[in-house]
Design a protein around this nucleic acid. Sequence first.
DNA 1: AATGATTTTTGATATGAACAATAATTTATT
DNA 2: AATAAATTATTGTTCATATCAAAAATCATT
Lengths: 151, 151
Amino acid sequence: MIDADTVAARLANLTFSLLANCQEKEVHLAELHGLTQAEFRCLRLFGTDESLNNKTIAERMKLSPSRLTRIIDGLVKKEYINREIDPNDRRNMRVTLSSKGKSLVQQLNKAYVDIHEEILQDIDPSMHEQLITAMTHLLEALEKWLAKTDY
Amino acid sequence: MIDADTVAARLANLTFSLLANCQEKEVHLAELHGLTQAEFRCLRLFGTDESLNNKTIAERMKLSPSRLTRIIDGLVKKEYINREIDPNDRRNMRVTLSSKGKSLVQQLNKAYVDIHEEILQDIDPSMHEQLITAMTHLLEALEKWLAKTDY
DNA sequence: AATGATTTTTGATATGAACAATAATTTATT
DNA sequence: AATAAATTATTGTTCATATCAAAAATCATT
């Protein structure tokens, strides 16, 4: 797809494939737990003891609040999260993980770390910090590029 | 989200953020060119002088042929691709990039390589090959993991 | 107390995607 | 050669995804 003759081009192809694979993995993992992709992503947004409201979740997921209402409906019905009125401001809904939700999130996080551990086992330990640095650069560059308005 | 105390956890967080950013970038880039995300991804699938048919594109994009028919409809209307009957097998449609399509694909590929070149400039050249190796391992591990059925 | 702003929900609507049926063509079988 | 079977793309239908506009509840300000 891209001429793989320069290091940059090879790296570009790698991140491209990586992205595609990650996406596929997410789809797979979601249906494994009987969740839609949106529900799955919503769940993954939670730290295990976090409490969020509809609006902030919508913002983080870059979806409309109305869409979020229905996604959360699904997660409540499937008993992964609890939804209750915020006593401090009764307009807000306090959305928190149920115990079922917590254990799933923990399990997912663990699996996610595990796979990266596996990967690191294939890589010389002296390279590990370097890899982290490189990936950090990659991420920073991407964020910088995204922040630009003129492209 | 994940305790960032081990290298594996840090790497996990990095790929997670990277994924989110790449997705955002794609959405942004698509609408910048007046394309839907599906159209954009379809276009990016083409090497500049490739000629595909409906079915193979559908397979590569993991979408149904019927969905593809409409996506290609849009790209034809926007004059990014040409669609003509394959003279060898008149059941097939030969889908190729128009000159407008070719130049966009080239431009996108160039931009994609450029951003990775920028990133590499921040990294010691002696480490480049190692980075590629590490990323290749990452990708391989992910593919291997995806191929497993029992997780 | 009245007005205006904020948060969520609901209803209506548009877009995304798959499935089933159809039409056109090619390949296989008799 | 004629018919049957298979393949490819398209169309109509249907369901899921996501947004927008309006409504209801609450809060903040005057």
